[in-house]
């Protein structure tokens, strides 16, 4: 040790219990900050209360935020305290105490992060299985809300969505209109490249893949207007692939449907009919010819 230039200038052993101070400050800060953040910030989180799934996502986001707030507090306290207390004097190169390990801290840390991770995964799974959380679940969904559902097929193509209502005689429209307080079963597919159907206020997102049927569920609430955007890069006009949709009362929905039927009466004979109307079976997917390449 004699050869070490810094040994002589090392300050006397520090008797302050830094660890205790940090832990107390962390607990105090977390106890104050976590409820404040959960109450004040959590409700600002998307996508809002436009649907049952949206409400559930907001709750989910709030819980996640409450879990990460103490983690942020720990690092904030640690770095504010540590960088203030443990900085070297200007120009001095003095060795600190040669601490190499402390298995108690390691075990505490591993247990702590492990518990958080298992809670997050468990909670996320629980929330997911409630009603699917509005995400696309593929052709065989695992989280299916009970009761009768209005089927709507969402057909993506470059660069617009078309909505097909099998229960309205295969009616097709470029407007998405849904009745209020209804469970809706969305079948999302594509005619060409991968798109992603994102109804922001409803909390729904489901990729549209050619040749596959991606099912997502949403339970609408009261009347509102919502935004539909494509959330997967789909070529030149991807940025312009957006539209507005509406949730309306049941009566308005019926009158809208009959109005649309009249509007499309001229071309209705050429469109796919639903099996109820004696038409071909309702196709859940479409396969474009590979030789018909856009661009």
């Amino acid at each position: 040790m004699a050869a070490e230039p810094s040994a002589a200038s090392r300050p006397p052993a520090d008797s302050t219990n830094h660890g205790f101070r940090v832990v107390v400050a962390w607990i105090a800060l977390s106890v104050v900050a976590t409820p404040l953040v959960a109450i004040l910030v959590g409700r600002l989180f998307p996508p809002g209360n436009g649907s049952a799934q949206g409400t559930e996502q907001v709750l989910d986001n709030t819980v996640l935020l409450s879990v990460i707030t103490p983690v942020v507090c720990l690092l904030a306290v640690f770095f504010v305290y540590g960088l203030r207390s443990f900085h070297a004097a200007p120009g001095a190169v003095v060795d600190g105490p040669p601490l190499r390990n402390d298995s108690r801290i390691q075990i505490l840390w591993i247990v702590g992060t492990g518990v958080i991770v298992l809670f997050l995964a468990g909670f996320g799974t629980f929330e997911l299985l409630q009603n699917g959380a509005g995400g696309g679940q593929g052709p065989n969904p695992i989280a299916v809300p009970g009761g009768s559902k209005l089927q709507v097929q969402v057909i993506g193509q470059q660069w617009q969505f078309t909505y097909r209502y099998p229960s309205l005689g295969g009616l097709e429209s470029n407007q998405l209109v849904l009745p209020e307080n209804t469970d809706v079963e969305l079948h999302v597919t594509s005619l060409d490249v991968i798109h992603s159907f994102w109804a922001y206020e409803l909390g729904v997102k489901a990729d549209a893949n050619p040749g596959s049927d991606n099912v997502a569920f949403v339970e609408t609430k009261g009347p509102e207007t919502f935004h539909v955007r494509c959330a997967e890069l789909c070529g030149l006009w991807h940025g312009y692939m957006y539209n507005n949709g509406r949730v309306v009362s049941s009566a308005q929905f019926q009158s809208w449907a009959s109005q649309q039927k009249k509007l499309y009466a001229a071309i209705a004979p050429f469109m796919n009919k639903s099996p109820a109307d004696g038409g071909a079976p309702y196709s859940k997917t479409y396969l474009p010819l590979p030789s018909e390449r856009a661009g």
Partner: peptide, 27 residues
């Protein structure tokens, strides 16, 4: 691919494995 609809029932597994990565990152 969480919303792609490829494998709806594997999502809880991938949620867990993704969150597990935060343990070694925490090291």
């Amino acid at each position: 691919l969480f919303v792609s609809g490829i494998n709806g029932d594997l999502r809880p597994f991938y949620m867990l494995s993704t969150e597990l990565i935060s343990i070694p990152t925490g090291f």
